[in-house]
Design a binder for these strands. Sequence first.
DNA 1: GTCTATATACCGATAGAC
DNA 2: GTCTATCGGTATATAGAC
Lengths: 217, 217
Amino acid sequence: MGIRRARAAETRGALMDAARRLFAERGYLNTKITDITAAAGRSTGSFYEHFADKDELLREMAREMEAQGDSVIDTENSAEHDLSDRQQLRDHVAGGWTVMRDHLGVVVAHLQSAIAAPPESRQMWRALVNQTTEFRDHLEYLRVRGHPLPGDPTVVAAAIGAMLSLFGYAALTAGEPVASDDEIVDTLTDLLLHGLAGPPIAHGSESGNKSGDEPEE
Amino acid sequence: MGIRRARAAETRGALMDAARRLFAERGYLNTKITDITAAAGRSTGSFYEHFADKDELLREMAREMEAQGDSVIDTENSAEHDLSDRQQLRDHVAGGWTVMRDHLGVVVAHLQSAIAAPPESRQMWRALVNQTTEFRDHLEYLRVRGHPLPGDPTVVAAAIGAMLSLFGYAALTAGEPVASDDEIVDTLTDLLLHGLAGPPIAHGSESGNKSGDEPEE
DNA sequence: GTCTATATACCGATAGAC
DNA sequence: GTCTATCGGTATATAGAC
């Protein structure tokens, strides 16, 4: 491999690394292309040798993320998942949470990009549905087996995706941690599994929750 | 009342009406001040006689909305609400849904504005917490009475707020209705009340009704 | 491929006539 | 208060030297 190509790949990588960091800090919309090149120690013009625009850069970052084996919600295709089983549901929630943590820049950028689009483009609904196809399949699997669902699987999946996306965005950019990762995953899992009514009373397990953390205003 | 003042109020109203429509269609971020003035049939400079900038216009729209008696989530201060009661929970969900429908422009603008801000500003988390203070209070009321919650009331309320905000945004801008309003409200209510596990086999409230509803096999 | 310099476009905001 | 005209700042994208 020639030196030129190595240098090129290096620049490309430097740009993407810088973008990841800046997107997580300042966000996608507020990060200018000159910010990225400056942070990467390259010139403005160099950017366009590798990407057509900021949007293509984001798509490349998403491609790379998924190539690493992570996806936005979950990747398991087994489809034989029982989301009414706490452990399996928790695995899904935890998986999504981890992805958001580890790829905060990409996730932030995606959400900002989708919501900055004109509402009439319907982009947000499409994004939500696309993000949750696996989840919807699992719900349909449940329904086929006679399990009662709160509503149409697509709608339920989208609602859950909306919760995870926006809550994740808010909590992971909140500065001080809202709670520990485990607490959050447990909370979201229990909320999604049994709702506010709580689990059927077998032995009235106390809601052993106590996070002395009070996020103010 | 002088003609000048009437004309001024008229302009102000025309600008706000145009903004409401444009925000709902094109969104807050994509609507330029000149778009608003053009749609209102006024000149660019006229805008600044009534509002310092687009942000102040939005705040005024929000003020007007709340002055009409609606708020983003709910306005009942009774605080003696039992969110584990389906009817009361449904009323809250339906209330929030109706507000989003009737003030789509303001709601769209608020969400876009909050999520377009730099993540480091922590604005989204603050917005979520502020939007759901009432809800959180109701949850704390539940907890005090010994009802088990999925987690910290602030976190649970924020998660629910995130779901309603983003799902509402997506569904109400999806073009063709995702489902009827009643279906959506019912679905969200049931999801939030009993989760994916579903209600204990014979739908009782939280009473000692024997549960044991777990999908077989 | 990378750089510097710049064209282009756009939008927010203001000045000043009426 | 409303208008027309314009300034000033800023970001994208390109041109052309190296």
